[in-house]
Amino acid sequence: MELTVTLEINEKKHVLTLDSRTTLLDLLREELHLTGTKKGCDHGQCGTCTILLDGKRVNSCLILAASADQKSITTIEGLSSSNSLHPLQKAFISHDALQCGYCTPGQILSAAGFLNEPWERTTEGIKEGMSGNLCRCGAYPNILTAVQEVLENQKLLNPQKASHS
């Protein structure tokens, strides 16, 4: 069955006619060629497809595109502005929080979502809160450091926000 949805993707409005079976992940990758969002399992088990849906992190492989009608989506392509990288992207690079890079867009979007969630801002809190994103290269210690650094800087910028956990 075909249907039409309206999505705001990376601040751009898209009106799309699609197969009702299409997942949000396949829509992004195969129709819109936003291939920065990765498919690692297609079953909600790995987190490589993580995007922000209305600001919240979700596994886009578990969401039918049709059910995201009227929602706003941020993918890795839309995370940073044209000229400068998002602080998470910078921190991932400088702490070498990646190797093959396949889990990386998902890790970064997941971390971006995590920053807005009421997790304890401790090592254990980050480790637990980031455990939905698998990394077979084992970049975890560096991902942890990168996320910690961004949190640290946020606290400096916005102490009230960072301290309520």
Binding site: I76, L85, L98, G101
Partner: peptide
């Protein structure tokens, strides 16, 4: 040194085997 492909990989621009959009795929 920072990983040379770090920026490509953190911005989603690094293309893996299934990431090449082609006409009439």
């Amino acid at each position: 040194l920072d990983r040379a492909d770090g920026e490509l990989k953190t911005t989603g621009k690094a293309r893996y085997a299934a990431d090449f959009p082609l006409e009439r795929m």
